[in-house]
Design a protein around this nucleic acid. Structure first.
Length: 459
RNA sequence: GGCACCGUGGCGGAGUGGCUACGCAGCGGCCUGCAAAGCCGUGUACACCGGUUCGAUUCCGGUCGGUGCCUCCA
């Protein structure tokens, strides 16, 4: 079990992972608001935290990963009205899409996937506690959080409350009810056009955006859990508010480490629904392949912006091809001890703020050294590589495809070509190679004769 | 305007006070009938200007440029 360090946004420094209960780690990752299908950018945190969980498990930790879905929200109401459906139907439809789309990544499910709509008792109880402590107040059926009641407000995003632009752009009603423009809604009274509402001590209504996460995270993981994650666009206001709510209600911090991933960028700009430059996740998986997409996500440090472009996608595809290639020459079993330092360096890199990019450098060095040994006639065991790729959920590329090998027709052509080559009839041999290529097979001539490789693995 | 982050060789992308990251592409070579794959070799890279230092891409200050957030956003 290595010492794990993770960058904490609140302190701006690496923090050692120190679980409340030794060996047990809770991670809460903010998921999407389900009003349309998620895009590749939304997949980055899903991937980062799923892989972090795998790495921590590899290191011997027991990990509980919680990823919520926001299924009640202004955006959902608005989209439902536009589409002539109910917000409940829309949220359910998009939640199902979200599960199916993320399932395409082949990373399993988070251990808990709470919904705001099924967490109302906890949400309401938390708001009641805040009101009882005078950290929140009711106003005509709304409840607002009193930002200035939290002396540490702004500490996560390093903002000075008195320097902040004040005002809530699109909610003039709320502005009148607030005692301070900085305050934000914990509970919103039901309004015309909103087709869902829940009973509360303040009348029928629904929760604000931030309170659900405070409630659901505490319910699933307790207070002071190890890692709270999400995209860095959530640092303010979402996570700042989440932290403030729990702090004021519980006199305890919600999480120990606030971890934030960088944005996926398309042509230098954040990929976002609001920018309108999105590629749907399910389309990206279909076009890029699940394997290359994961490798692409690992190619840069999680905190850095990641360019999603023809070039970076092609490079990721090339990486997968290279792995498939070496898989053909490795044998099952232990790897040479001399290669262990690269495997260890890979693991050390992940332990140091989950630096997958640095880790991959060592993985590629391992691959090169293994290829060198193979070329020298050594049988190289795949154990190290399988271990490293397993953490990245890419060990599948080492396994032969389940579908059938070359059919009789292809093998016949190969035999014919062997015969032509034996007669040094190069013209005929090349024709047959072209015929095999047309049938989807790439010919590899080696010391032990020719073999066929699926063209999709080499193209 | 405020806060945060970033500017590394053709591209992507780590990292470090002095020692090859790594990958892709290119070039040369080995192997090969040719090719593919693999291997070997190959790049006066650290935005600019000052400062600290024996020495800075790395630390400090400034300039320029970019990205994110500033109550919709992963």
């Amino acid at each position: 079990m290595r010492t794990i360090r993770i960058h904490d946004t609140a302190s701006g420094a690496l923090q050692e992972l120190r679980p409340r209960v030794p060996g047990q780690v809770g991670i809460y990752a903010c998921g999407p608001t389900v009003y349309n299908r998620i895009h590749v950018g939304n997949a980055r945190p899903f991937v980062v935290y799923a892989l972090l969980k795998r790495f921590l498990q590899h290191e011997g930790f027991e990990v509980t990963l919680v990823a919520n879905l926001t299924d009640v929200n202004d955006k959902i109401y608005a989209a439902a009205v536009r589409q002539g459906t109910t917000s409940t139907a829309l949220a359910e439809e998009m939640s199902a899409h979200y599960r199916a789309d993320t399932e395409l990544l082949g990373l399993g499910r988070p251990d808990v996937e709470p919904l705001a709509t099924t967490s109302m008792p906890g949400i309401i109880a938390l708001i009641e506690d805040l009101v009882a402590r005078d950290a929140a107040y009711e106003a005509e059926g709304d409840v607002y959080f009193r930002v200035r009641s939290d002396a540490r407000y702004g500490s996560l995003s390093r903002r000075d409350v008195d320097q902040m632009d004040q005002g809530e752009g699109d909610d003039p009603v709320g502005l009148e009810l607030k005692q301070d423009p900085l305050d934000f809604a914990l509970w919103k009274a039901n309004k015309p056009g909103e087709d869902t509402a829940w009973d509360s001590p303040w009348g029928r209504g629904r929760p604000g955006w931030h309170i659900e996460c405070s409630a659901m995270a505490e319910e699933a993981l307790g207070l002071g859990f190890e890692i709270h994650g999400g995209g860095n666009d959530l640092v303010f206001p979402h996570h700042e508010n989440e932290a403030a709510q729990t702090r004021c209600a519980r006199d305890h911090e919600l999480a120990q480490i606030w971890m934030h991933n960088g944005m996926l960028q398309l042509r230098g700009e954040k990929m976002a629904k609001s920018v309108g430059n999105v590629t749907a996740l399910h389309e990206a998986v279909a076009e890029v392949s699940r394997d290359a997409l994961l490798l692409l996500f690992c190619s840069a440090h999680y905190r850095q912006p990641l360019a999603y472009s023809e070039d970076t996608i092609e490079q990721a595809r090339g990486g997968i091809r290279r792995l498939r290639e070496i898989a053909r020459t490795l044998v099952p079993g232990p790897s040479p001890e001399a290669l262990a330092p690269e495997r260890d360096a890979f693991l050390d890199a992940l332990a140091d703020d989950f630096n997958t990019a640095r880790g991959l450098g060592h993985l590629w060095t391992w691959v090169r050294d293994a290829n060198r040994r193979t070329a020298a006639g050594e049988q190289v065991g795949d154990e190290h590589l399988r271990e490293m790729l397993g953490i990245l959920a890419l060990d599948n590329v080492l396994d032969a495809p389940d579908d059938d090998g070359p059919d009789d027709a292809a093998l016949g052509l190969l035999r014919e070509r062997d015969a032509a080559r034996a007669e040094r009839d190069w013209g005929r041999a090349d024709e047959l190679r072209d015929a095999l290529a047309a049938a989807g097979w790439t010919v590899r001539d080696g010391a032990d004769g020719a073999e066929l490789v699926r063209a999709e693995d080499t193209a």
